[in-house]
Amino acid sequence: MARLSFFIGLLALASLASVQAAELPDAIKQAGALHLTVNSTYAPMEYRDPASNELTGLDIDLANELAKRLNVKIVWSETAFAELIPALQTKRADFIISGISDRTSRRETADFVDYLVTGPQFFVLAENEAKVATDLCGKKIGTTRSTSFPAEIEKWSKQACESAGKPAAQYVPGENSIDVRNQLKQGRIDAAVQGSETLPYAQAQETGKYRIVGEPISIGYQGIMFRKDDATFRETIASELKAMIADGTYKVILDKWGLGANAVREPLLNAAPQ
């Protein structure tokens, strides 16, 4: 009897230990904190609240929930979008949750845990006459040049415009999403492309100013980005995320930001088609 209970005890201890071992990398355990960096110009995913100047957003909420479940704090830092991937590679960040799309071109040096459905979406000023996406053929379309959207626009233009005998869309670069909306307001561009996750917020900010045209021109995912050699850690985060989806916390957070429709049923690994 004693031997059995001893054996069960050992087993329990072992399983506990193995679960614990799978939890967190040493550096994070020692620091008791996750180091995360975001490009905080991307409402509603991560941005500074204009009134309080606090870092806020859907990614912030998701990360905070994850950290709570893992019993660690988060040390936040901010950087330009183009610096996110270098931040991950140089280990300045433990993982990237910053409205970054899962793309094959990025999977050379990273893996993605996809957590949000997204897709580039056309929108115009409310008074613009465009009704369907093909109305934008031959027009000037702007987007942030440091994203994957310029390539998306070109692909869409080939498929939807040029192959139908319509003039190609003209891509106009912008420095960030605010710059792009500025150019739209000034009339430098006729339409803009942003991730579909940003549009409910933009519309809420300036009610009646913008109008979405058509469906997202491709479906993709926002992913939490991990270094290739961080597979165990990645699995940990993925399972926590799965738990959050299962118990409804995930949906609550998404609904808070008006993005309930962009939910995934479960976290996916490197699932984006492009």
């Binding site: 183009a82 610096e83 991937i85 270098p86 071109s105 040049r145 440091s146 994203t147 670069p173």
Partner: peptide
């Protein structure tokens, strides 16, 4: 140069 590294992540 930025446009190129936005596409291929070769910042440095």
């Amino acid at each position: 140069a930025e446009n190129i590294y936005y596409a291929n992540s070769r910042v440095i």
